[in-house]
Amino acid sequence: MLVRHDGLIWAALALIFEAGLSLILELGLARSILWAAIRSVLQLSAVGVALSWLFQVQNTSLSLGVICLMTFAATHTVLKRIPNRRNSAYNGFSIHVFLSLAASAWIFSIFAGSLVLTPGSWRKPEVVLPFAGLLLGNSISGISLGLSQWVQGLNLERELIETRLAFGASSWEAVLPVFRQSLTTAMTPILNSMTVAGIVSLPGMMTGQLLAGADPSSAVQYQIAALFLIASSTFFGVISALFFGYRSVFNFKSQFQRLGLNDQTA
């Protein structure tokens, strides 16, 4: 099922009606509604143009380049979400975020495209680009939640970690409670959405497929595969970001390092 030829105009009229209502009732939302609408039209049109070009060219390395750019943007988003990063994090932080996002999204996109979806489809931009986007989007939320909790936990429990070390704990034993808590926090959203999938709402991907006329049972299969892959790639990304973090806050003498960034790059 596709949008009818004048469908977009009707959808736009609905939005304009709301903006008008806001204007009449002086709710102060009209500007934001219109601005958001314009932005979504421009951004999605640009993406549409870019995607149809990419799908036409069918160049694998070009798609990989695009995924690279997406990963940079994702890294930027994660870093913005870590509160008080300059004083509470550690050196190498942004590199860890980039590598973890890349590892999780890239590896699992290729994995999906070669073993889960139709064989060889990882070369096809129309499969790998949306899939990488899906995985990156979920990894962003997982990694930023996990790292926020991690950085906060390290700062709050600094004394406790030091005390554990003083009583003979290894650096891993000293930091394990914070590590565990961070991983749990990061995985909660995806685990929740797996738990309620189909009961509270249909996952977005499946909704799209059903609207586009796909057979429900194949949409279900696709959705289950997607959920599993999202959970796996999020877990992998979070674990790797946390392990990088663990390596950075202890030295080889199992001593807990001072936190806070002391250069401009990280």
């Binding site: 406790l160 003083a166 009583f167 003979g168 003498k253 199992s254």
Partner: peptide, 21 residues
């Protein structure tokens, strides 16, 4: 380096305020 936890279990530091889990 890898004997340090072992060493710390034999030479324990007890601070004025040692944090507790």
């Amino acid at each position: 380096n890898n004997q340090i936890p072992q060493y710390r279990s034999r030479v324990i530091y007890v601070g004025q305020r040692s944090a507790l889990s």
